[in-house]
Design a protein around this nucleic acid. Structure first.
Lengths: 165, 165
DNA sequence: GGACAGTAAAGAATAAAATCCTGTTTGTAC
DNA sequence: GTACAAACAGGATTTTATTCTTTACTGTCC
């Protein structure tokens, strides 16, 4: 049980994954509830090595989380908006404050620092247009450092997968 | 066990969730491996009702998937790019072909139909700039119907949560 | 008020899965 | 060939999920 003994902790270094690791990852990305036995059958191994590999993938930080994915529309968050934001002031402190603000807004489910005209790209979910307008005017724009904001509305989700390896 | 008897199948209708359902959802969005017992303790119920509620959330389609989330950088997919695409021709058939193409490209992990200047927004992961360039030139642009393509590079992930309710 | 139906939950029994332990196989260095 | 380590199989043990049975609560009809 070599991998089990590696004390590889969460650093930012990429790790080396063999064919079996990748097969296991692909299966778990699609269904995190798949049992070790089921995975073992699919990768043609017994449960022990599969279990050890999964634990190693968790310890090494390759698998960073197991999450239940929710149907937006079912929970009355049918509107998705991509929202671009530029700041007026770009000091370290101003940026930190903005990020803190974003993290307190539950409507914002993703936020990226991006290249180009705007500073940030946000993925926002809301119940409907009124709800989004309220978020825009009363929450997002409350930060005094917000410059421009531009909204792009998502009209349809064509692909949304977790599988990337 | 009222909810257990509801034969609510996956439609697009929003469903009604009470406080307890929302608490359970919040926990599972953060950690899909949390045991029924742990959840039960946190929501101050026994395992039975919690188990039944979870099963109902699955059957009704509120929980659409359990997924292992991967650290991009760890699996050598450190570069994330937001990619805008407009098509030359907008017929139903041309759109369908594009979507089919997108679904065959593993680098594209998300694809949205959007409002505004471009038709689609793609989230793409690649190993590095060369890898992305190769994707852009040899894969994405191979569709004969591609008009404009614009790439925005993600310089940092500031927030990425599954929790939306 | 009291019987009744419907709903929600607790507690215990059972089934299934994860986890751990022991030993075997395989490849490699000496 | 022998020693050693990595990777694995099979089975024992522990933990968890699932099911079953019983109890408690709520509102309605008579």
């Amino acid at each position: 049980m070599a991998k089990a003994l590696k004390t590889e902790q969460t650093t930012n270094e990429p790790v080396t994954l063999d064919k079996t690791d990748l097969s296991i990852l692909r299966l778990l990305q699609q269904n995190a509830r798949m049992t070790v036995k089921e995975i073992a059958d699919k990768v043609h191994l017994s449960t022990t090595p599969v279990h050890e590999r999964i634990k190693w993938l968790e310890r090494s930080g390759v698998i960073k989380q197991y999450a239940a994915l929710i149907d937006h529309a079912k929970v009355k968050k049918g509107l998705m908006v991509i929202c671009y934001v530029s700041l007026k002031e770009h000091s370290r402190n101003a940026g930190t404050k903005f990020i803190k603000h974003i993290n307190e807004l539950p409507e914002v489910i993703e936020c990226y620092n991006i290249s180009g005209e705007f500073d940030f790209m946000l993925k926002v979910v809301a119940e409907n247009m009124d709800d989004y307008y309220n978020f825009h005017v009363n929450k997002l724009s409350q930060s005094e450092n917000i410059g421009n904001v531009q909204s792009v509305f998502v009209m349809g989700v064509l692909k949304h997968t977790q599988v990337m390896v």
